[in-house]
């Protein structure tokens, strides 16, 4: 199995789906000749030509709008939003059109659309290149939201997203792009959407996370293991629909749950996970459900010390986990 970076795995998944299905095409700002600002679509323009790798104007609403139209007539568009921060001009298209297409047409029409967007901070991107926007969409019925945390998941989930008959938002944590390498299968495989993954087994506390910070959690769990604290770590992978069975089972295993995400806390994904556990697993809880998340400030600061203060790190995660273990 070849060792691939997270970003290469996404490129490979995209390329494989385009090769396998003529209906799949890519559109977005600078995805063609330039190969994407992060180089995710590098080489696709040369391989598949300008009809299937389409450079668009700087108009996110148009990118997604065009993709919805193409999806409606049977294409499989993969739209790239250069940074998740810029997805907001396309919010109306995604929420009011893509998410409602199947419902509104009583199942006559569907919208097999993928919107890819790099999100998250820690790369000195400041206000407009660091946001986590997943919670804004997690509220919307009719959407699926994928947030893979590993290269193999990124490839497998992207292929699943492209084959999905309904709109999928595919959020790629940009800090992971070149941070992680692992064995990624060459063969045709998918990682199904809506399925969480247990990343580590333990019986003192359960930590539920996703995206980049999942790796902080795993590192913290390693540290705590030397203190005799064992951690069950669940990677949500898909934020909508949430894998209820896996969440409840992980929560029940230890009765002590900490939810960790980079996005801010209020009305975030952690709130939904927490409410689900409170509704369905109250009598298995041994401690108040805890959340560790970004602060309630409007944006990621630019100054490096402030950016560090904003972001979670292994220290903060370890402390929160240790505190829960001691309760």
């Amino acid at each position: 199995m070849p060792v691939r970076q997270y970003i290469e795995a996404i490129h490979d998944g995209l390329s494989a789906e385009m090769a396998a299905d003529d209906r799949v095409f890519v559109l977005g700002e600078d995805v063609g000749v330039r190969g994407g600002v992060f180089r995710v679509t590098s080489g696709l323009f040369e391989q598949f030509g300008e009809a299937r790798v389409v450079d668009t104007p700087l108009a996110e609403s148009a990118i997604v709008g065009v993709a919805i139209g193409a999806a409606a007539v049977g294409m499989r568009p993969v739209a790239e939003i250069q940074f998740a921060d810029f997805i907001l001009p396309a919010m109306n298209q995604i929420v009011s059109e893509a998410a409602k297409m199947r419902y509104r047409s009583n199942g006559d029409w569907s919208c097999p659309l993928v919107v890819r967007a790099p999100y998250g901070g820690g790369i000195h991107g400041a206000l407009y290149h660091s946001q986590s926007v997943e919670a804004l969409f997690a509220h919307v019925p009719g959407l699926k939201i994928a947030t893979p945390a590993t290269p193999a998941d990124a490839k497998g989930m992207l292929r699943a997203a492209i084959r999905d008959p309904d709109p999928v938002l595919f959020f790629e944590h940009k800090k992971l792009y070149r941070l992680l390498k692992e064995d990624v299968p060459d063969e045709d495989y998918i990682v199904p959407l809506g399925k969480a993954a247990v990343r580590r087994q333990g019986d003192d506390i359960t930590v539920i996370s996703y995206g980049y910070v999942l790796h902080l959690v795993l590192e913290a769990a390693d540290r705590l293991a030397s203190e005799g604290i064992t951690t069950e770590v669940l990677d949500l992978r898909t934020l909508r629909p949430l894998d209820e069975e896996a969440i409840l089972s992980a929560a029940r295993k230890t009765g002590k749950v900490l939810i960790v995400h980079e996005d801010n806390k209020v009305a975030g994904v952690g709130a939904e996970v927490s409410a689900m556990i409170a509704e369905k697993a109250l009598f298995d809880l041994d401690a108040p459900i805890a959340r560790l998340a970004g602060p309630e400030v409007p944006a990621m600061p630019f100054a490096p010390p402030l950016e560090r203060a904003y972001l979670l790190d292994v220290e903060k995660v370890t402390n929160a986990m240790r505190e829960l273990a001691r309760f």
Binding site: G255, D284, D286, A287, R326
Partner: peptide, 30 residues
């Protein structure tokens, strides 16, 4: 905690017999 009460009820445990190891001597599920 709910977990402790559920376990105690299910297994007929008198919690007075259990030694707490949590914060402030709290009886944990474990």
């Amino acid at each position: 905690s709910p977990a402790v009460l559920s376990l105690a009820e299910e297994h007929h445990v008198d919690l007075a017999d259990v030694t707490g190891s949590g914060e402030g001597g709290r009886i944990t599920r474990k």
